[in-house]
Structures are given as structure tokens and as C-alpha cells.
Amino acid sequence: MEWTNGELLWIAQSQEDTTRLARKLADLVVPGTVIALDGDLGAGKTTWSQAFAAAIGVREVVNSPTFTIIKEYEGEKLPFYHMDVYRLSQEEADELGLDEYFFGDGVTVVEWASLIDDLLPPRRLVISIQHAGDGSREFRIKGYGAPYAEWCQMLNEIGESEG
């Protein structure tokens, strides 16, 4: 784990490491949480989203919402709104009324979020996932505004104490 310029670098050597990160973030979420996910095809966006959904108590199978755009799930902790905006133009995304999700009672995870950057709330958690070789992944996590910037600092401190 590495902390530089307000950005946390989390290395996941395995699926268990990815799940551990998802659980740690799930412990922090509150209604209206927005998590913006980006990364190349196959980087692990949906895998991370599935682990996160399970960590907030979603019991249903969570699949990529590539063709449905938005899937809603009921979690034990909070509702989970899973979006994939890869196939949308910014105009189409704007017409969907995403603010109802972003400022609603649940947690919203947006895959390919950088494609609709102008529509995302200014306060959000941004996670970029990259292949790091040998099946490992790099999660670059940056919080914009409260409480997200504090979450990154907390994750860094937790990681240091586990390290």
C-alpha cells in the first residue's frame, strides 16, 4: 500500500485481496455514496463490484449491467445501484436521471465512470483498476470531498497497521 498526493495505491495479489478492499470500503459507506470505477476491459471492475455488493449484504447474483445500464439490488446495509455506462453517450446518460441514484438512499457504483465525468457528483470516490502482471491488480483510489478523502486516509492507516 502506498499513499501519495491524496491517492492510495492498493495492490491486490489475489481475489481475496480484492474482496478485502471491497469489505473495507463497504464498512464505510453511507446513503448517497458514489463510487466511480474505471479500468481497461477485464481489469476487474465487475469482480470488485460483486465483492462490494456481497459486503453490503446483497444476496442476489450481481452481473455486469452492460446491456441493462443500471441494476438495482437490495442489500442488508443499503440498496446497491450498479451502473455500466460504457455503451452510453453523455447525452443518453444525462437523460437517465442519474442524480436520483447519486443522491438517493443507496450506494451507487458506476463502471466506466470517466465516460460521464461531467454528470458525476463532485464528491465521490474514484477507483482505477489496472493489470499489474501475474494476475495482480493495482487499485488507485482517490477521494474527492468529504467523506471520501477521509476514507482514503483511513484505508491507508488500516493498511499500515496490517502491514
Score class of each variant (00 low, 15 high):
A22M: 03
A22I: 02
R23P: 02
K24L: 15
K24N: 10
K24V: 09
A26N: 05
D27T: 12
L28W: 04
V29F: 08
P31I: 14
P31E: 14
G32S: 07
V34L: 08
I35A: 01
A36R: 01
L37G: 00
D38A: 14
D38T: 10
G39C: 07
G39S: 05
D40T: 10
D40N: 11
D40G: 11
L41Q: 10
G42N: 12
A43W: 03
A43V: 10
G44T: 02
K45C: 05
K45M: 06
T46V: 04
T46D: 03
T46R: 01
T47V: 10
W48C: 02
S49T: 09
Q50W: 04
Q50C: 07
A51I: 02
A51M: 04
F52K: 00
F52P: 00
F52C: 01
A53V: 06
A54T: 13
A54N: 14
A55Q: 03
A55E: 01
I56F: 09
I56Y: 04
I56P: 04
G57L: 06
G57A: 07
G57C: 08
G57K: 04
V58Q: 01
R59K: 15
R59Q: 13
R59P: 11
V62N: 02
N63Q: 15
S64C: 06
S64H: 04
T66L: 10
F67M: 11
T68N: 14
I69V: 14
I69Q: 09
I70Q: 06
I70R: 10
K71P: 04
K71D: 11
E72S: 14
E74Q: 15
E76H: 07
E76V: 13
E76Y: 09
K77M: 09
P79I: 11
F80G: 02
F80Y: 12
Y81I: 03
Y81C: 05
H82I: 03
H82C: 08
H82N: 11
M83H: 08
M83E: 04
D84V: 04
V85N: 01
V85K: 01
V85W: 05
R87S: 10
R87W: 12
R87G: 06
S89Y: 13
S89W: 12
S89K: 15
Q90G: 06
E92D: 14
E92F: 07
E95Y: 14
E95D: 14
L96G: 05
L96H: 05
L96C: 08
G97P: 06
G97Q: 05
D99T: 12
E100N: 15
E100M: 12
E100L: 12
Y101G: 01
F102H: 03
F102A: 07
F102Y: 10
F103M: 13
F103E: 14
F103N: 15
G104N: 08
G104S: 08
G104I: 07
D105Q: 15
D105W: 13
G106H: 06
G106V: 03
G106I: 01
G106P: 03
V107P: 00
V107Q: 02
T108V: 13
V109D: 01
V110M: 04
E111H: 08
E111K: 05
E111L: 03
W112R: 03
A113H: 00
A113N: 02
A113W: 00
A113Q: 00
A113V: 02
S114K: 13
S114V: 02
D117Y: 09
D117R: 10
D117W: 11
D117S: 14
D117T: 12
D118F: 12
D118M: 14
L119F: 09
L119N: 02
L120I: 08
L120E: 10
L120D: 07
L120Y: 05
P121E: 09
